[in-house]
């Protein structure tokens, strides 16, 4: 206890500077990671339906300025801006078809007002005219187990509600083997025509809609360029994009004949 320091040595200016820089960098790193983690969480929601003409979700999130002009332009109050506490990317526009579907205005008022191009007029323009029928907001999906038409009960509510009547939803007839004398009239969504407006979801009579809209990238698969409809000349063009990749295994790196004769890799 004899060597109690009575005076603390003052920190040199150089040491102080270095320590302060380290503090700043440390705080920035800490804050940066918390901030990034939060942003990553809130932008991860992928089940949102965007207004017509919306560009790819990842581009949409960086391009939308969250001004709400599309929401103001919508005459049906279909579009909403995500509020704090909605657990959706904050301030971005979306719609919930079961509450209020897109009624597919021919003039598409929500798209041209977008100041940033997050809603792209070109993607809903055909022959230099706005065309809502080519919008790709999502795609309707039918749950066969709860759709009463699949049970054999007659219902064509979704088919009748569809603005592209007989095109985006078609009815498939088949024999009802259970009764032997009735027909199933099953709704089938045509993925190349469905715009994802959600009028079918709104019209569905079941307690929780048996037909509902999902974002296209969530609900649709992709066959890849190796599988071609050989009977379709246009589809064959996709072959040009196909790439080949050969995997090499213990056995396949030698020629097939060799591996058969010397018995390597076999029992």
């Amino acid at each position: 206890m004899s060597e109690i320091k009575t005076k603390r040595e003052p920190i040199s200016d150089r040491r102080k500077f270095i320590l302060n820089m380290a503090r700043g960098a440390g705080l920035a790193t800490m804050g940066g990671f918390i901030w990034s983690a939060y942003v990553d969480e809130v932008t991860a929601s992928s089940l949102l339906l965007r207004p017509p003409g919306a560009i790819k979700e990842s581009d949409f999130l960086k391009t939308c300025i969250k001004c709400g002009l599309c929401v103001l332009a919508c005459p049906y109050n279909t579009l909403l801006l995500a509020k704090a506490g909605d657990n959706k990317p904050l301030g971005t526009p979306y719609f919930v078809p079961r509450d209020m579907p897109c009624y597919m205005c021919p003039t598409i008022p929500c798209v041209p007002v977008c100041p940033t191009g997050a809603l792209d007029e070109k993607s809903v323009t055909k022959d230099e005219k706005l065309d809502i029928n080519i919008a790709e907001m999502g795609i309707a999906v039918v749950d066969h187990s709860s759709c009463i038409a699949f049970w054999g009960i007659q219902c064509d509510a979704c088919y009748r509600a569809c603005p592209l009547l007989g095109v985006a939803i078609t009815i498939e007839y088949s024999k009802n083997e259970r009764t032997g004398k009735h027909a199933f009239m099953k709704p089938v969504v045509q993925s190349e025509s469905c715009t994802g407006c959600g009028m079918c979801e709104k019209a569905c009579v079941t307690e929780k809609a048996a037909i509902f809209v999902l974002p296209r990238e969530v609900a649709l698969g992709r066959a890849g360029d190796h599988y071609i409809k050989g009977w379709d000349k246009n589809d064959e063009k996709r072959l040009e994009n196909a790439t080949s990749k050969t995997t090499t295994t213990e056995i396949s790196k030698e020629s097939a004949v060799d591996s058969l004769n010397d018995g390597k890799g076999l029992y």
Partner: peptide, 8 residues
């Protein structure tokens, strides 16, 4: 992150 970070 590829999004306007402060806006979120």
């Amino acid at each position: 992150m590829g999004v306007a970070a402060f806006e979120f």
